[in-house]
Every structure is written in C-alpha cells, then in structure tokens.
C-alpha cells in the first residue's frame, strides 16, 4: 500500500468505519443508561430536581477551596489539558472544515500559531499527569490498564497532529494519514472506555444534582 493509498483509506473507508462505531456505540450506551430508569421516589419533593441537576452540571467543574488545596495539581493540569483538547480539536481551521463537511456548518477558527502553542501545552500537561499518576501511591493503586491505554490513545492524536503540522520525521502524506488514523482509533474505543465520560458527565452530574435537589439539599 502506497502512502497516498494509506491516506485515501483513512480519509475514506477508515473514517466510515470509525464514525459508524463511534455513533452507534455512543447512542446505544446512552439508550441503555436512560432506559434502565430509576426507582420512583415516593418521598415528598422538597426542592426542584431540574434546578439542582442543572446547577450541579456547572458547579462540579469548579472545585471548592478545600478540594482545590488538597489536589491542586490534578485540578490545574486537568483544566489545562481538557481546555487544550477542546481548543485543538474544535478551533483549528482544518478540523472545523472536517466538522463542517459532516454537520453542514462551521465556526471561526483560532490563529494557527495559537493552536500550535496549545498543542504543546496540552501534551506537556498530559505527560505531567502521567508522571503524577505513577508517582502518587494512591493514584497508582487505583489505576487500571485501561487508564493507561486511554491516556495513550488521548495523547497520540496530539503528538501525531503536531508532527504532521511541522512535518517532522516522515513524509507528509504518511504523517497526515497516521494522525487521522490515531483519531479514528480514539473514535473507535471512545464508547467502550472511560472516554465516554465526555458525554456521560452531564448525565451523572445531573442525577447527582437532581437527587439532592429533590431532597432540597445542596449537592
């Protein structure tokens, strides 16, 4: 297979396969969670479920003072790499073109040098997080093989994207193809690993907040 054939494959059939697994996986998992339902709460409502749920979705993103002091590193690095991922994935002009091709509309991009810098920052944050995970005894103890695998699959598109943009090490078509392939890998494992939290986070936070809201307590 020539490198252009490889590139044509990841842009064509490879992307099809990845998007089918991604979309089907996410929808089926959501359907399973939602359709399982919850036991009706027979107690009298002391507050609003909706209000509590929505508040918690937002408020859980910002740690209270004690939590922050206890795990400042996790909070800061977490914010950096999640923000970095958002910016590099959704605000880079070529990526927006890809979204526009699928969903029919686009949005303004950030200047390329900003994306470039954010990529480096995000990669560094992810590396720091791995070191922290390994060095911290408690974290190391609760880490599974899946955690390391997911970490790898998350950082790969960043590294391959950086190499493809700067055209380092290999020929340009191969670099681009590897970058797209790494993203397809991410899409394929996404619904079946902890990566799914990107979607389910709103759901679980809403449940938590709604339960407290119903009881009329702060979540």
């Amino acid at each position: 297979m020539s490198e252009i054939e490889f590139l044509n494959w990841v842009r064509g059939p490879g992307f099809q396969i990845a998007i089918i697994i991604f979309v089907a996986g996410v929808i089926i998992r959501f359907a399973e969670i939602l359709l399982l339902g919850r036991k009706p709460n027979l107690a009298e409502a002391k507050g609003s479920e909706m209000r509590g749920g929505l508040c918690t979705i937002v408020s859980r993103s910002f740690p209270d003072k004690n939590t922050f002091q206890r795990s400042a590193f996790t909070e800061v690095s977490g914010w950096i790499f999640h923000g970095g991922l958002f910016i590099t994935i959704f605000l880079f002009a070529p990526h927006i073109l890809m979204f526009k091709d699928i969903i029919g509309f686009g949005w303004p991009a950030l200047p390329t040098p900003v994306i470039d810098a954010m990529t480096v920052v995000t990669i560094i944050a992810l590396l720091a997080i791995l070191v922290h995970r390994i060095n911290n005894r408690a974290l190391r103890f609760i880490s599974t093989k899946e955690d390391y695998f997911v970490w790898l699959i998350t950082i790969l598109p960043l590294i391959t994207g950086y190499l493809a943009f700067h055209r380092i090490g290999m020929t340009a078509p191969t670099l681009l193809a590897i970058h797209i392939l790494s993203v397809e890998l991410l899409m394929v494992i996404f619904p079946f690993t902890k990566l799914m939290h990107a979607f389910t986070i709103t759901l679980s936070r809403w449940y938590n907040g709604a339960i407290s809201g119903y009881r009329g307590v702060e979540s």
């Binding site: 044509n8 998007i19 073109l97 091709d101």
Partner: peptide
C-alpha cells in the same frame, strides 16, 4: 480539503444513528 473525509459521512451518521 485534506482534513475532510472523502466519503459522504453525513449520510453514514444519519443511518448509523
């Protein structure tokens, strides 16, 4: 553009969904 998939992904997404 090089960053776009070559096939009609919108259709794939709708059918898959």
């Amino acid at each position: 553009a090089l960053s776009m998939p070559t096939e009609n992904i919108t259709r794939t997404v709708i059918y898959t969904a």
